[in-house]
C-alpha cells in the first residue's frame, strides 16, 4: 500500500511563501493498494489536482471506482467535490463515507445548495455517487478493508478510519480532539498496531481562537501513536498559522522525545508502507 498527499492543510487553504515547502492545499490523500486500485481520504482543495491526474486512468473513460473516506464534513474535507473532474464523467463510481448528526446527504445538499454552488445539486454530477453514513461494521471497497469510528471532535462529525490492504494497516485521525484524561477507546482502536498513523497537528499561538476550535496539538499525536503501538507517525492537517518553519520545529521537538519515526506530510510526497 502507498499513499500520496495532495493537500495537508486544515481549516482553509494557505497560499503564500511561508507554506510553499509543505503546500497550502486543504486535506486530500490518495491511497493505492498493490493492485493499483485507488482510495481517497478527504476532498479538500488538494483533490482538484488528484482529479485531474485520475482522468489519465480509467476515470477518463468513465470506468473508475473510488471510495472516498471523509474524516470530517467541514469545507476543508469536502469543499473540492464540486471541482473534482471524475465526478463529471458518466460511468465513474464515487462512494462517499462520512458522519454528521444531520446525515451526510444533508451536509452535501448544503455544499451544493444552488445559492452557493452553480452545480445546483449533488444529483447533477454525472458519475454515480454513493452517499453512505458511517457503516457500523467494517466493509470492503475497491480492494480495501475499511473500518470507521466516530472519534471525539467538537462537532460530532469526526471519523477515524482504519484502512487495510496487502497486509498493511493505515490509520487516519485527522479530525480528532483529545479531551483531558485517558485517550478514547475509539481512537486507540483505529490506530492499534498501524504501520502508519496519520494524525492531526495544529499549531496554536497563544490566544489563537478558542480551545474548542484548535484541534489536537502535536504532542497528543505522539501519545496516541505510543498508546496504540503504531509503527510510524505522520502529521497532517496543520493549522493555517503553522508555517513551514514552525512545522519543522514541531517535528524536531517530537523527534527529540520520540522513539518512533515521526514525519510531516508534504504535498506531492509519496509514502510506501
Amino acid at each position: 500500500m502507498k499513499l500520496r498527499f495532495w493537500g495537508v492543510r486544515g481549516f482553509y487553504p494557505t497560499p503564500g511563501a511561508e507554506f510553499a515547502r509543505y503546500g497550502g492545499n486543504t486535506a486530500a490523500c490518495e491511497v493505492r493498494n498493490a493492485a493499483g486500485q485507488p482510495l481517497l481520504v478527504d476532498v479538500g482543495t488538494g483533490a482538484v489536482g488528484l482529479g485531474r491526474a485520475l482522468m489519465g486512468e480509467a476515470f477518463g473513460r468513465g470506468a473508475g471506482q473510488l471510495p472516498i473516506l471523509l474524516t470530517d464534513t467541514h469545507l476543508d474535507h469536502t469543499g473540492a467535490l464540486p471541482f473534482f473532474i471524475p465526478a463529471f464523467v458518466p460511468g465513474n463510481r464515487l462512494d462517499l463515507y462520512g458522519a454528521a448528526p444531520v446525515g451526510l446527504r444533508r451536509v452535501l445538499d448544503a455544499l451544493f445548495d444552488p445559492h452557493v454552488c452553480p452545480i445546483n445539486s449533488i444529483d447533477n454530477l454525472s458519475a454515480t455517487i454513493g452517499i453512505r453514513d458511517l457503516p457500523s461494521t467494517p466493509f470492503e471497497n475497491n480492494g480495501f478493508q475499511i473500518a470507521g469510528r466516530r472519534v471525539p471532535h467538537g462537532n460530532d462529525t469526526g471519523v477515524g478510519w482504519r484502512i487495510e490492504a496487502d497486509g498493511k494497516v493505515l490509520a487516519f485521525l485527522t479530525a480528532v480532539d483529545h479531551p483531558d484524561g485517558p485517550l478514547a477507546e475509539s481512537v486507540l482502536a483505529i490506530a492499534r498496531d498501524a504501520d502508519l498513523l496519520v494524525h492531526i497537528a495544529t499549531w496554536r499561538d497563544p490566544g489563537e481562537w478558542s480551545s474548542r476550535r484548535g484541534g489536537a496539538v502535536a504532542h497528543k499525536a505522539l501519545a496516541v501513536a505510543h498508546g496504540a503501538k503504531a509503527k510510524r507517525l505522520c502529521l497532517s492537517h496543520y493549522g493555517p498559522r503553522c508555517t513551514d518553519d514552525r512545522l519543522e520545529e514541531m517535528v524536531r521537538r517530537l523527534r527529540d522525545v520520540s522513539s518512533l519515526p515521526v514525519m510531516a506530510s508534504r504535498e506531492g510526497e509519496e509514502i510506501e508502507l
Binding site: Y12, P13, T14, P15, G16, G23, G24, T45, A80, F83
Partner: peptide
C-alpha cells in the same frame, strides 16, 4: 472558483 496555493500561482496569488 477555488483557492489555488502553489508555486505556479505565487506571483498573482491563490486566494
Amino acid at each position: 472558483s477555488y483557492p489555488v496555493p502553489g508555486p505556479e500561482t505565487s506571483r498573482y496569488g491563490g486566494n
